[in-house]
Design a protein around this nucleic acid. Sequence first.
RNA 1: GUGGGCGUAGCUCAGCUGGUUAGAGCGCCUGGUUGUGGUCCAGGAGGUCGGGGGUUCGAAACCCCUCGCUCACCCCA
Length: 414
Amino acid sequence: MALQPVRGTRDILPEEGIRMAEVCAISSETALWYGYEEIATPIFEFTGVFDRTLGEATDVVTKEMYTFEDRNGDSLTLRPEGTAPVARAVVSNGLAQNAPLKFYYQGPMFRHERPQKGRYRQLHQVGVELFGVPGPLGDVEVIALGAHILERLGLTDKVRLELNSLGDPESRAAYRDALVGYLKDHLDGLSAESKTRLDRNPLRILDSKNEGDKTIVAAGPRYTDFLNQPSAAFFEEVKSRLDDLGVAYQVNPTLVRGFDYYCHTAFEFITDALGAQGTVMAGGRYDGLVQALGGPSLPGVGWAAGVERLSLLMTEPPVKPRPIAVVPIGEPAAAVALRITHALRHQGFAVDLGYSGNLGRRMKRANKVNACAAVMIGDDELAAGNATIRDLDSGEQIVADLDDLAASLEKYKT
RNA sequence: GUGGGCGUAGCUCAGCUGGUUAGAGCGCCUGGUUGUGGUCCAGGAGGUCGGGGGUUCGAAACCCCUCGCUCACCCCA
């Protein structure tokens, strides 16, 4: 077809739009209960915001960003994720002194990946970021909020929480060295891809799906054994506070994050219902990020969730409001019907007024838009100053005075 | 970026090893019913068979290229 949307993008039609809007509405409302207020950052940033923070060896930076020069010659990038821009906004607006800061955001992200179900080049995320809380309570709050949102979306049974700790930079370096040393002894058994990752991004080998890699990794050094005392204590605290709250999780020592700015807690809410695109909400702690952007030393922790993936998991059909259909019969009634429609809409009713047709056609339309009631006005009603209200579920009809039509229709208000 | 599967009406799909006017169900439109919807009945509209090239007397079908979807790898939300 000649007119198709750009690969990896698509039109979100009302049916799906309702679901996605519901995901966003529930997320933002729940976030507000925890004190997280909405922030919106631009859809593109200077490229440096991303390539200096996500990690120069990461796939997103090396081959997935939509980067272009604008007319001034500046290198700009369509945001591939939401955390770095929010951190940038904190620095740009000098917000750090008001810490702790709690933000919720929602909007499109862009990554040039090979499209698949639940994986698009323009994707939509909701996310939260908490700045200025150095202790485990921050991690716990953010995870609890995520779990709460999933619960309200009815997805608790479809999703499990996996947890790991990447430790502080010292622990991370120690583990990295140990892992690289171990893997070099088992080079022959590694997949070709993992071999190239060995010096660029060795931690990535941990979550390889290659069976040979998995076997080697399973017998190798475990991340948790390399956490230094403060890092281990931090992780223990996160776990026991989650236990207190009854948030279920399982520790996965091979869980790592895609971006370099993460440390300590890393977590993912995963589903088995979406094939290879199982991660539905993921995040962690990023204590060095704000500083990497030139800001003050300000710890942070947060997560992002894929709106498409979440709405794909919601199997309940979306509920659409049922309008009231106003149907004029004959030409003289048409003008009155328009005025009544206008008045009812101003009183908060959802009202459908067809554009043409006789009574039969208009009733068909009323049925098609799933109207709950029809307000009919013909010559008889016009003369008497009333309207016939037909309940479209029961078929019962009553006659109501035009002057208090709204009162008579009260039970049909959505 | 790599490999596999698939693109026929708005949707879901038939169409046998190439044979001439490309079908069904659902949906849509019209009428039966110009003061009463859903059901039912009758009729109708709608397709450059994803696009381009090739093979052939003849291509929706075979070949090549291309675009897109999909699954896995990869990556990640």
